[in-house]
Design a protein around this nucleic acid. Sequence first.
DNA 1: CTTGAAGCTCTAGTCACTAGAGGTTTTATA
DNA 2: TATAAAACCTCTAGTGACTAGAGCTTCAAG
Lengths: 145, 145
Amino acid sequence: MIYSIGQLSKETQCKVPTIRYYEEIGLLDKANRSEGNQRQYSSLQCQRLHFIRHSRALGFSLDEIKQLIHLQDCKYDEPHQAHHCEPNALNLAHQIAQEHLVDVRNKIKELKSLEKTLLKMINTCDNTDSTDCEILKSLNTIKAE
Amino acid sequence: MIYSIGQLSKETQCKVPTIRYYEEIGLLDKANRSEGNQRQYSSLQCQRLHFIRHSRALGFSLDEIKQLIHLQDCKYDEPHQAHHCEPNALNLAHQIAQEHLVDVRNKIKELKSLEKTLLKMINTCDNTDSTDCEILKSLNTIKAE
DNA sequence: CTTGAAGCTCTAGTCACTAGAGGTTTTATA
DNA sequence: TATAAAACCTCTAGTGACTAGAGCTTCAAG
C-alpha cells in the first residue's frame, strides 16, 4: 500500500502541512517522491506517523518522541548485535514515560488550585445586582499559589 | 514611589524583558523615561503589572487580560458619564472569568484521562525483567480519548 | 575616576504548528 | 481528448508568550 500525503493525512488524522513539518524537522524520514515530485508513503511510515500522533495526544513533546523513536529503532534493528544504542534503552522508555506522568500530575494539581481560585472569584461576584463585581478587584489581590 | 525596571521586576516577580515585552505589545502603557532614557514606573503601573501577573498565574491569556484592563478603565474613568464603554462591562468580566473556568475544567478532564492511559502503559511494562517493555508497543496502538 | 551592574535597542530563537502566495501535477468529468 | 478542479509543491511569515544574545550606554559605589 502506497499513500499520497493526502491519504496519509486522512488515515492518521494529521494535517498535511504538519506531515511536511515533521519531515522538515527530521521526525519522519524524507518521503520518496513520484515522477511528478509528490510524496509517497509506505505502511511503515504510516505506522510511524500513528505512533507520533498517539504520543502527541498523550502530551509527549516532539523531542521526547524523537527519543522514543530512536529507542524503537534500537529495539528492532539488529537486536542481537552490538551497536551504538545504550544497553538499557527499554528502561529509558520507561523513564521517559514516568517523568512525563509526573509532569501531567503536577499540571493537574496546578489546574485544580486554579479552578478553586476562579470559582471563588466568580461566586463572590454578585452579578444579578449589576452595580458591582468583585472579579476585577480580586485580580488585583488574589494570587494563584 | 518611583521604580526602575529592575525594581519593578523584583517587586512583581516579572522578568525585565517580559516587562519590556508587555510595553511593546501595549499591555502596559509606555513608561516615562529618565534623562538617561531609562524607564520609570509609578505605583499605579506597578499595581497594573501585579494585576497582569495574577491574571497570568490564573491562566488568562494576554488578550483576555487586555479586555479585563479595558473593563477596569471603564469602571474607574468617569464612571457617571456616557462614553465608549459598553453598559454591562462588569458582567463581561464575569463572563470572561466563567468561560475561562470552563476551559480550565476541560483541561483537567483531558489531563486526567491522559494520566490514566500513561499509568496503564507504565504498569503494563515489567521493567524489572528488562527483556521487554510494553511502552513502545502500546504507543503504536493506544489512543488517548 | 574607574569599574561593574543595570539599563538600552534590535534581532533572532523557542515550540508545534498554521496560513497564504504562487506555481505544478494529478484526477475526474464533458 | 480537452479542460477544470482538486491536490500537490516550495517558500515565507505568523501565532503566543516569552527568552537569549550582541553591542552599546548610563548609573551607582568605592
